[in-house]
Amino acid sequence: MIASIKAEWRKNRFRPAFLVSTGLIAGIVVLFYSAEWYQAAHPGGPREAVSILTLFPDQFVNNVMGAGFPLGAAMALVLGALIAGSEYSWGTLKTVFTQRPGRLSTLFGRVVVFQAWMGIMTLIIFAVGAGYSVVIASVQGHSISWPAAVDVAKGMGAIWLILAVNGSLGIALGALFRQSAAALGVGLIYVTVLQIIVVRFITSFNGGTYKWIADWFDGQNASALLQSFTSPAFGRSTPPAIGAEQAVLVLVAYLAFFLIASAALLRQRDVT
């Protein structure tokens, strides 16, 4: 297992897809903050004014939550589909499986390194958000105070969990289709379109009788978990439909399911 983790890290540490995605998500946090800052400085636009108070460091955890779903989730899914699917098209799965570790410990190493990358992306999101909020506070001449450490930790845990779940979905789809293109296509359609339409339909059907079914979708739970971080400073407070604890449990169940499915597929099937 240690051998697989070491090998997976060596092969993924400079992987272009991971480096580009990490840069991209950092760029998106910067873009988001810049847009909000502009709006706060120029009220009277079409959108409701943003209070400059929400852009200071004490609120940064709530602000970076937006990077989690669906954008971060979609990126994680793409990376998961790539890390699993390209092993087939490159023929590297064959090379790896004929070395020493068994198939399951190979998957274990892959998942550990992948989730470590999701952790790195989470850290980057938080670091960039925190950094930018310090810049805004300094420019505006506002004093700098931070959220409680426990809130930062919770926020990071939430983002990491959402990336981990969607990345694992990508890994499972990569193993299912034995290529990255199909896995990526199907996964993205599910996360960004299909799931949202289905949930909307179920929620509205027959006056909402079946809304409880919609509450079991991973995207619903991810959104609810992110929403639970909204603070009163933002003015808009729609109470999330699903409690944070329940959302975490449902997401963990999805994570486990996707990983078990990947393990079953990888263990059973022929590698040609």
Binding site: R10, K11, F14, P16, Q99, R100
Partner: peptide, 27 residues
Amino acid sequence: GSLVEAPGFYPYLSGRENLKVVADFAG
């Protein structure tokens, strides 16, 4: 030690780095 059909390696890594990855997997 085996080479079955076309050799499969990571295209974005150098030949040497690929061998190191394989050596890591082989323990």
